[in-house]
């Protein structure tokens, strides 16, 4: 078990390293004349050269990268080229908003999906058909369209929620809940649709397994077999889909934050992207990759718990 955890941990760190390295090289090598963009087209060549040397851009790329990496390991991700703010501070202050949105959506999706998935797989018939059809629709409609719909219906027309803005959880839980409810719903619908399909599918597969009959023949009730054995066996594929969804939601959150004007990672990403503020973009990539690695690690451990073959081989 320890070896399993260590191995997963090692491959996670490796993944983080590779992603950030590739991202750094692509971002800094592909950016063209960065200094020129920062000082503006009217600046003289001397001003451009000065800016470049101020930012260290005149050094070889590998040297710049080594510099960045050693600083990054101490938690220093550099400063924004445009407003001089610390990247680490900018990213971490917004991380909590994005994480609370995505985590909220995933947790809600997990619970709802299991309930609906079990219902559809066990009952079959019309229940199953309705769940499948609604699921397809939920999967098909892009999350930001749902968000737009929710904003115009509940916030602009019915005025049940505030359309935009954010209240930190520490200030007021009620205020926080009111501002994140619609975004979380918008994010979770597609996620629920995808996970329900997987839960339903793998449950139906698991229900067909021979051991279900054998366990029932030993005197265990159908419900007991479903909740203790079948669900656990169907859990692996469902968790894998949940992990994929989590990663997808990190992307979806960018747009949803924009619609609800939430001060999350998406906000600085969009701003930095528009300006070409590479250090900030790099900071966002590092943060996202770290979240992804952490999520994958958690999911891997859960898989190992569910399936002894994974952890013992």
């Amino acid at each position: 078990m320890y070896r399993f955890v260590l191995r997963r941990l090692f491959s996670g760190v490796l993944l983080l390293f590779v992603i950030t390295t590739v991202a750094y090289l692509l971002l800094y090598a592909g950016g063209g004349d960065i200094a020129r963009r920062i000082v503006g087209p009217t600046a003289s060549d001397a001003q451009v050269a000065l800016k470049a040397s101020q930012l260290g851009l005149d050094r070889p790329l590998v040297v710049q990268y080594w510099d960045w990496l050693t600083n990054a390991l101490t938690g220093d991700l550099g400063r924004s080229w445009f407003n001089g703010q610390l990247v680490s501070a900018g990213v971490s202050s917004r991380l909590s908003v994005t994480i609370s949105l995505v985590l909220g959506a995933v947790l809600i999706a997990a619970v709802i999906s299991v309930v609906i998935g079990v219902w559809a797989a066990v009952r079959r018939g019309w229940v199953d058909r309705v769940v499948q059809f609604v699921g397809v629709l939920g999967f098909a409609i892009p999350g930001f369209l749902i968000a737009l719909g929710l904003v115009s219906l509940f916030a602009l027309n019915l005025k049940w929620f505030k359309a935009t803005g954010y209240v930190p959880m520490t200030t007021s839980f009620g205020g926080w809940a009111a501002t994140v409810t619609l975004p979380i719903i918008a994010l979770s619908i597609g996620c629920i649709a995808a996970v329900v399909q997987q839960v339903r599918g793998s449950l139906i597969d698991a229900l067909r397994q021979d051991y279900v009959r054998t366990l029932r023949a030993r005197g265990l009730s159908f419900n007991r077999v479903v909740y203790k054995h079948v669900l656990r066996n169907a859990g692996g594929p469902a968790l894998a889909v949940l992990a994929v969804q989590f990663i997808g939601l990190l992307g979806g959150a960018v747009i949803v934050e924009q619609i609800f004007a939430l001060p999350g990672l998406g906000q600085i990403t969009v701003a930095a992207t528009g300006q070409g503020d590479i250090p900030v973009v790099m900071g966002v990539v590092v943060a996202t990759a770290a979240i992804v690695v952490a999520v994958n690690l958690i999911i891997d451990l859960a898989q190992g718990w569910l399936n002894p073959k994974v952890r013992l081989s």
Binding site: L15, V18, A23, L27, G31, V244, L250, G252, T273, V292
Partner: peptide
């Protein structure tokens, strides 16, 4: 493949947009 699936497409596109 695993590497590409590890990052949200949206974030990659935004990062790429910053450069290209």
């Amino acid at each position: 493949t695993g590497l590409m699936m590890a990052l949200p497409g949206m974030v990659v596109l935004l990062a790429a947009r910053a450069v290209v």
